[in-house]
Amino acid sequence: MKVVVDMNKCQDHGQCVFAAPDVFSLDDAGHLAYVSDPDDALRDEVEEAADVCPLQAIRIEA
């Protein structure tokens, strides 16, 4: 699956990290890093991450 985070929207809330730690992480400065092509087995997690992003910055494409 393909994940896109709109980095213009993202404000590093990190809620996505709690929902899908295998896909999203915050670096030491507190900024978001993520895997853009996670395994399909992680779809539930990623959908949950998209739900809980306060800025609604996460898009799942296919």
Binding site: D12, H13, G14, V17, F18, L26, A29, G30, H31
Partner: peptide, 12 residues
């Protein structure tokens, strides 16, 4: 700032 907000998350 952002760094302290992230440190709160560590207490979660």
């Amino acid at each position: 700032g952002q760094a302290v907000a992230a440190s709160a998350a560590r207490y979660r």
